[in-house]
């Protein structure tokens, strides 16, 4: 509007201007791709898979800690997506639905493998108090090599309680919001928010100790 035109620049009717200013064509939404796949378009699944393969794989791998089991679970999750394509309804973001499937597979795997680490699906009342405000001015990049930090991050992540780690991984890898994390894990929103806050605080604290 700064050029005096009565129209917003995004809807300019001048061909050359619109060619210059037109935004990049938005990609097809995950949900649309899933619907297309449910309708028989295998190419839509390929796009969907390419978008989520890395994040889902890292979520499962880092959550279960067993590479072999993670690969099996990963394949199992995608098989669930394929099988559920006919029942798929757009009631939430596809990512939320996908990570809900993965979460459920992980729970099943934990139960089968007797790794009863996170039987408590409640809140995090037992967590020790962390002074988050005291870590505000932490600047790790100044004093520590990034490679070391990344390695330390993975170690700290593995040391987190499973619920907090899951909340963090869903946040980072799945791009889920607090509400979506709550939906995917079956927890309340405040619980999910608390888990995420604790996870981040512990990671920051651990990294601060390294530096």
């Amino acid at each position: 509007m700064g050029n005096g035109s009565p129209y917003p620049e995004a809807v300019s009717v001048i061909p050359n201007a619109s060619a210059r200013l037109s935004p990049v064509k938005s990609p097809i939404a995950d949900e649309e791709l899933m619907l297309r796949y449910a309708a028989g378009d295998a190419a839509a699944f390929e796009q969907l898979y390419a978008r989520h393969r890395g994040g889902l794989f890292r979520y499962i791998t880092r959550q279960c800690g067993d590479r072999g089991a993670a690969e099996e679970l990963y394949q199992d999750v995608w098989s669930g997506v394929i099988e559920a394509r006919k029942r798929y309804r757009v009631e939430a973001r596809f990512a939320t639905w996908l990570y809900t499937l993965a979460h459920n597979r992980l729970i099943d795997w934990y139960r089968k493998s007797s790794r009863v680490v996170w039987v408590d699906f409640g809140g995090d009342e037992d967590e020790p108090e962390i002074d988050i405000a005291a870590q505000r001015h932490w600047q790790p990049e100044v004093r520590t090599e990034s490679r070391q930090l990344a390695q330390a991050m993975l170690e700290l992540l593995a040391a987190l309680p499973p619920q907090q780690r899951e909340a963090f991984l869903l946040y980072e890898e799945g791009g889920l919001s607090v509400e979506e994390i709550a939906a995917a894990t079956g927890a309340g929103i405040e619980t999910a928010k608390s888990r995420l806050r604790y996870a981040i605080a512990k990671l920051r604290l651990g990294l601060q100790d390294l530096t």
């Binding site: 393969r53 890395g54 794989f57 890292r58 791998t61 880092r62 690969e71 990963y74 870590q135 505000r136 932490w138 600047q139 790790p140 990049e141 990034s146 490679r147 930090l149 990344a150 390695q151 991050m153 993975l154 992540l157 963090f168 980072e172 981040i200 990671l203 920051r204 990294l207």
Partner: peptide, 17 residues
């Protein structure tokens, strides 16, 4: 601060299938 944590996490190895 959360952004810093995310940045460090993004620097971790990108494991893929």
């Amino acid at each position: 601060d959360d952004g810093e944590i995310s940045r460090i996490y993004a620097a971790t190895p990108r494991d893929e299938p």
